[in-house]
């Protein structure tokens, strides 16, 4: 399956439109679910989805199997673009809603923040993340679903940067063990 995906990307790099159609049909439901979860709005999500797959078409030649599976390639790109969109929406809404007072802006006053909060809240208990201690799960979710950097997470949680880094590392190690256990 992964090999077939890599083949599709190789053919896309050779400007094979049929390969792109297959690639889109295979990976778009995964990407769209992820984007929708992050962005929250179907119209925005559809925009982002198109952006992601257009980028994939353009960047097919730079795909390096040594760096990850085609699935990961799509997911990481989809997540990054979705987060870009959320950040852009956040900046725009901040400009309109609170053009002057940037210091007081927080998640509660931010509609896009609400979306992100809802996304985090929707995390299912049965998922791999659900198996993590709350503190570790929190930093990973903020990074993954809201696209916050470690510095931003530290600010948001009012925790030292070192603590955030440690929690993230421990959480990811634990996830890796769970994922590895699932894989075995």
């Amino acid at each position: 399956m992964a090999e077939a995906g890599a083949d599709l990307i190789r053919r896309m790099a050779a400007r094979d439109g049929a390969a792109f159609a297959s690639f889109y049909d295979r990976y778009s439901p995964l990407a769209y679910g992820l984007i929708l979860r992050i962005v929250g709005d179907r119209t925005d999500a559809a925009d982002v989805l198109q952006e992601v797959f257009w980028e994939a078409w353009q960047a097919a030649a730079s795909y390096d199997p040594a760096r990850g599976t085609p699935e990961a390639w799509v997911v990481i790109r989809a997540r990054a673009r979705a987060i870009d969109r959320v950040r852009a929406l956040r900046r725009r809404s901040r400009t309109f809603v609170e053009p002057v007072d940037e210091v007081s802006s927080d998640a509660a006053a931010d509609p896009s923040g609400d979306v992100a909060e809802r996304a985090v809240a929707r995390t299912t208990v049965g998922s791999a993340l659900g198996a993590l201690p709350e503190a570790q799960r929190e930093v990973i979710e903020l990074a993954y679903w809201q696209g916050l950097t470690q510095t931003e997470i530290a600010e948001r949680l009012k925790q030292p940067l070192g603590t955030v880094k440690t929690r993230m590392r421990l959480g990811l190690e634990r996830l890796r063990a769970i994922v590895g256990g699932q894989g075995a």
Binding site: L30, G33, A45, R79, T124, S127, A128, V179
Partner: peptide, 21 residues
């Protein structure tokens, strides 16, 4: 990096796949 990518895929599974327009 490959492992992190795989984890990103696992984490993505937290969101249900959806049929795009």
């Amino acid at each position: 990096l490959r492992e992190a990518g795989d984890m990103a895929v696992v984490l993505a599974a937290d969101a249900a796949p959806a049929v795009p327009p």
